[in-house]
Write a protein that binds this DNA or RNA. Structure first.
Length: 103
DNA sequence: CCAATGACTAATC
DNA sequence: CGATTAGCCATTG
């Protein structure tokens, strides 16, 4: 467990229900616009999936990306929140993408 | 510190 | 659209 991870999870918690954000946005929010990879790692190291909406983190192109429990699991969670997923991608992604609010 | 890995991204063919 | 390459970051051995 590391500080970076905590930051990532914290950002994920800021994501409202029924919305999704990209690893890129998270990385940018943390001040590392090119650390999308590191962000993804943090998500994978998340200790409490239900506590950390890591399933709301998707790829820059709206793809689901990945999930510790399986991409299918991620899809179901998103659908439960109102995020429609088609062919492994988020429907109306541009409209559901969430942007962090940097004070 | 070096090398390797990973839930990524953008560009190119 | 699909596949490939190079780039970038943090964590771990």
């Amino acid at each position: 467990m590391t500080i970076f991870n905590k930051k990532v999870w914290s950002a994920l918690k800021l994501i409202p229900c029924g919305r999704v954000t990209t690893y890129q946005e998270i990385a940018n929010y943390l001040g590392k616009s090119k650390a999308a990879r590191a962000v993804g790692n943090a998500c994978g190291h998340n200790p409490d999936a239900p506590k950390v909406p890591c399933h709301r983190a998707v790829k820059s192109d709206g793809g689901l990306g990945g999930y510790s429990g399986g991409a299918t699991r991620k899809i179901e969670l998103l659908r439960e929140e109102g995020v429609e997923v088609r062919k492994g991608k988020v429907a109306e992604f541009s409209n559901k993408k969430f942007a962090f609010d940097k004070v």
